[in-house]
Every structure is written in C-alpha cells, then in structure tokens.
Nucleic acid binder design. Structure first.
Lengths: 339, 339
DNA sequence: GTTAGCACTCGCTCGCAATGAGTGCTAACA
DNA sequence: TGTTAGCACTCATTGCGAGCGAGTGCTAAC
C-alpha cells in the first residue's frame, strides 16, 4: 500500500488541523475542511489505511486521529505549505537585527531574541574556538596586580580574561609584553597558545616569572575555547503550550535544557541548511514529543555555530523554518567582519 | 490582646510545620509537636485568637491553619530559629566561590550559581556604572575597520565595546590614540565620557574624523551604564514547589521575571544588610505569594549591586538569610581588587 | 485556665449514569 | 471497484450524590 495523492492530501489536512487545534481530528470535520468533496466514510477508510501505515495514531478508539512523528516527517520533507510572507519575514528581520549586532550580543542576546520572535525555546551554540588563529595579544592594566588579557583572532573573535600579574609592571611594560607575546604567538591556534602557556607555567622560565597565574589562565582558556558553549533562551515559552500544562512534563523539559552537553551534541549535528529533528530523532528523552529546528551561522571564515528552536512536534514547520533561515542569514551577515 | 510567649511559640511551630509540609496545620498535630504539653483544645483556643489577630488563615472551616504574611513577618523579625551550621555554610561557600570570581562571572554565572545552591529563583543586579571614574582607555585592532574599546574604571570594572574605526589606522596608531584618550579622560566619570563622545560626534572635530561611529558607541555606553542590569537564574526552580503546580500561576511568575524594570526597582530597595520582603511587600502582583530575600554586594569602593532569591512565602528564612549573607560577603570579597 | 467530649462543617474521593464524539462494519449504490 | 448512508459500539468526559475524615467551635466539667 502506498501513499497516493489523496492520502497525502488528507494527511496534510490532519497535520495542519492538529497543529492549530491540538485536538484529535475526526473524519467528519475533515471531510468538510480537506476540500476533496468526499464523505466522511471515505475519509474514514483512508484514515484507517494511514493508521495502519503508522502515520496516524488514535489516543483511544472513539477519538479522532493524531499525526505521528512519521507523519510530521513526511509533512516536512514532502510538503511545503505556506510559510511566512515577505512582510512578516521583514518585520521579524528588523526586530532581530536590532538586537543582535556582534558576537557578544549573539551570546548574550541571541537566544532571547530568537525565543521572543518565535515563541519557542531557543538555543544558541557558539562555535568551538580552539582552532581560531591568534592575530594579536594585548595586556591592559586593570588594578595594581590585575591585567586584562585580550586575544584577537583571525575571525575577529575576542577572548578576554582577567589575570593576575606582578605588581611591578606598569602600563607600558604590559604593552611591551603584549607586543612580545603577539610576536611570538601570532598565527598559532588558541589551542597551541594554551599548550605554550602550560609549558611556561611548568618550566618557569623568564616569562613565567613576569606573569603570575599562567596555569590558571591556560585552564580558563581551555574551558572557554575547547568546549562549545550553548545558551538557552525563553525556556518559559514552553508553558504556553497545552502539551506542557502538566508541571512534571514541564519540569522534565526544563531539566533537559540544563544538561548542556546533550544540547551541544544535539546542535553539533547541524548541517548546512535548515534542519528539522522530530520527536525521537532528537535523541533526547525529554524531547520525545518535541521538534527541533536548527540552522547554522558562520563567524568569520569557516567557523560555524548553530541556532535552534525547540517546541512541541505540533509546530508550524514552514513558518518556523523560514524564520530560522532568516536568522541564520542575519547572524552570518552581522558576524562577518570585512577583512 | 497581645501575642504572649505561648502564642509566639505556637505561631512558630505552625510556621515551621507549614514550611516543611505545605499543608494546613491542625490543633492535634500541633499539641504533639510544639512541646508545650497542653491539649489540642487549648491550642485551638490560642489558634482562634491568632486567627482573629490576622496571623493565621483558614482555607476553609474544617481545615487547619495557614500562616499569613503577617505571621511570616513576625517570624522573621522576632524569631531567629536555627539557620545553617558552619559545615553547610562552608560547603556552599566553596561551591559558590568556585563559580564566581570576577565581575564578568558575576554577570554571566552569578544568578545560576545562587539559584543552584538555594533551589530558588535568583536575581542579580549589577551596579549602575555611570558614576565610575575612568582610569584608562585602550583601543585594540580587531579587523581592518574594527577596534575594541576597553575602558578601565576605578573599580577595576571594564566596559568593552566593539566599534568601527577608520581602516587607515594600524595597531600603533590606535595605541597612541588610546593613550591620548586616556590622558584626556582620566578621572572623568563614564557619564562625562559619554557626554564628551556625543560632543565629538556633533562637532566633528579632528578626533571625530579619526574615529567612526562615535555616536553609536556613546549610545551603547549609555544603554549599558545608565540603567542597572538584572540577571535572572533558575527560573525553573519554581516548578518544584507545589504552590506553582498550576501552569497559569507558574506562567504569571515567569512573566513577572521578564519585566526587568520592576525587578530593578525591587532590587534597588536593597539596603545594607539582608532584607526580607514578604508577599505584598514586594510590590509585584505575581509575587503576592512569594518572599524575596535580598543582599547587597560592593564592587570596588562604594558602588553596590544586589542579589536576591525569590520563592514561595513558605521558605526556610533563617537558612536562606544565612546563605544570602554568605553570598554577599563572598561577592564583595571577590570583587574588591586591591588598589 | 485547661481539658474532654461532641456536634458540625466541608473539601476530597469514589462510583455510577448520562452524554456525545468518533469509529468500524455492512450493505446498498454508481 | 470505489463511494456512501446507516447503525451498533466504544470510551473519555462530565455531573452528581454518598461516604469519609480531618479539623473546628462550643460547652461543661475539672
């Protein structure tokens, strides 16, 4: 038995009805809304077939049908119903670009901007930074025994860390040391710089005596650069969906958002275009009834991060995919400095 | 009718029982637990008095009593039952100081550290920074037409912003400009610096031609420094309290957390020591059944921020006040650089 | 002032019947 | 062979009333 055109049409009508209503769809209403001009009995026959094929589920025998994950999958891959019109997109684009301008605001604002505009929970993955190449290093005096170390990389991305320094060093001495460090480390990756710092700390040569707390610094760099970082925004949006009216369910969802490492591995799977993971495809138990829409963004050349929204599988996919696609473009545009 | 010692003792027992059980407290259980050695009938008489005086509320006539906000207020101000012992405090202190080291981590980590350790929702108010005095300014080349402006203030607090600059300027030119700016602006407040930048942008004198996007920068500084900023952490903790098992209530709570300006005015009321606001005292409708415990922290000299936790009025006040007091000390310690 | 006793209140739970939306099946129809 | 009307059947949901029990207020005795 295959899914012919009529079955597809019925399935589409069911999915779209369910997305709006969140109640099982019955054959009678369907015969009126799907526009095929056939009676409810015919629809019933088709629905029985679709149920047998695993596209539909009935909560209980005398209820209507609910689309399964398989149905959403078919819906997303085979059908491309109305997304957002130009006006809507443009309005959202403006709202978004007003809030996210540079890499810092992506990290601090990105997730909440996306969640505000989509009304879903948003995730932002910052790209792993240990492969970035160092362009220059700078030491800026902050207090008598503290300096700010600023690392500029080839993507314009900046890592800054406050470190302890010998109190004998004044501003110009620190500037000179910065120049020296730049000279020595230019072109190396952040990972190599880190290894070098570990080396200094261990060997305690001239530079190690000048800079205190180098091991600390290297460790902190490792933490900040080696693992991707993920930001969550708008977690409370989930409370607006009746699927999560039960506190236990909502709690499980929120807890899943706390487990950063699983979110990171979820977002690492982001590929070039817009990605959609439905239900179990997410690989996260608490997201069994959720869908995740992912999109990549580029920082500088080649280093990619990812954004995502998470919400009930009952989601206006086309609209949200349009949204995410737009965010992806906007971010990449905002973050690519001209060289 | 006044609150004599026995009434106080009974009230205390009710509050503490209710904090643990979250169920109305009856006279029978109370006669056993309060340790007065009187019968339930006697307790009932006293409870009737306390109800009349507004310290107790009965949800319905055949239920036990529930402490009112007035009761919690009396409990907090007059009674000081067991807080945390030294060991507990010490363990929490370690966990906290491991996560919050400098002003940046207070902003990014503070709220979630506090919420993790208390299991309540945490708020962190960063101090207004426009009164800080500038110590030095630095320009660091990031890309051909971008530089990082770092402002070091007398509290060691750093404001950094990415700005557009003329592409004709190389690293050493930017360094020189930084020195010049430092020379000119040292000792001024951030507010004065901002005004000066606005002036440059308007008059378009020599320096304005050198630096592009000055007005942008000034506006951004204004936004970042003029208004206090507030961070929220662990909002989902509220879902663990049965008082918020209803999604509508939880949603109202979460929405209140989105209204930053009312949170700011809540936290601005923080005074020198640990503050406790109970129910309507918070002035926020959604926090009518919540209590807020606030504590100040100092950054450098004199500039104060505030931390707070928000949770159901049924809260182990003494323990939480101990906690907040410790956080306050730790933060102030971690953020006061030696001069 | 304290306590035992007792009638009373009222939220909560459980079982039961009525309701109604929706199904599957069958037989007739085009 | 596909479509449709008709009909018996299922089952979640709702409303209702009885029974339960925790807890109270009051009264009378200590």
């Amino acid at each position: 038995m295959d899914v012919d055109a009529r079955k597809l049409r019925i399935l589409q009508a069911i999915v779209e009805d369910y997305i709006l209503s969140n109640t099982p769809v019955g054959s009678r209403t369907l015969s009126k809304t799907c526009g095929l001009g056939v009676s409810s009995a015919t629809i019933r026959n088709e629905m029985a077939d679709l149920t047998e094929m695993g596209y539909l589920v009935q909560p209980h025998v005398s209820a209507g049908r609910v689309p399964s994950a398989k149905a959403y999958r078919l819906y997303v891959t085979q059908l491309r119903p109305r997304g957002m019109d130009e006006q809507e997109i443009e309005r959202a684009r403006k709202a978004f670009s007003g809030r996210v301008r540079d890499i810092e605001s992506v990290i601090s604002q990105g997730a909440s901007a996306i969640s505000d505009l989509t009304h879903y929970t948003a995730l932002v993955l910052t790209p792993r930074q240990s492969d970035l190449k160092v362009r220059s290093l700078h030491l800026i005096p902050v207090a008598s025994d503290r300096a700010l170390l600023v690392i500029v990389t080839d993507s314009g991305v900046i890592r800054d860390t406050s470190i302890r320094v010998s109190s004998r060093l004044d501003a110009s001495a620190l500037y000179t040391i910065g120049q020296m460090l730049t000279h020595r480390m230019q072109g190396l990756t952040l990972r190599q710089v880190r290894e070098m710092l570990y080396g200094y700390a261990a060997n305690s040569d001239a530079d190690a005596r000048v800079l205190g707390g180098i091991a600390d610094l290297a460790a902190q760099m490792e933490k900040q650069t080696e693992s991707d970082r993920v930001m969550v925004g708008g977690a409370h949006n989930i409370l607006y969906y009746p699927e999560y009216a039960d506190v236990t369910t909502a709690r499980a969802f929120m807890n899943a958002l706390e487990d950063k490492s699983s979110l990171i591995s979820l977002l690492r799977r982001t590929e070039n275009g817009i990605g959609v993971m439905i239900g179990a495809e997410t690989g996260i138990e608490a997201f069994r009834d959720c869908s995740v829409i992912t999109a990549p963004y580029r920082v500088g050349r080649g280093h990619t991060g990812a954004i995502a929204i998470v919400g009930p599988t009952r989601m206006p996919y086309a609209r949200m995919m349009d949204m995410m696609s737009m965010f992806s473009q906007e971010l990449t545009g905002a973050l690519s400095y001209k060289e």
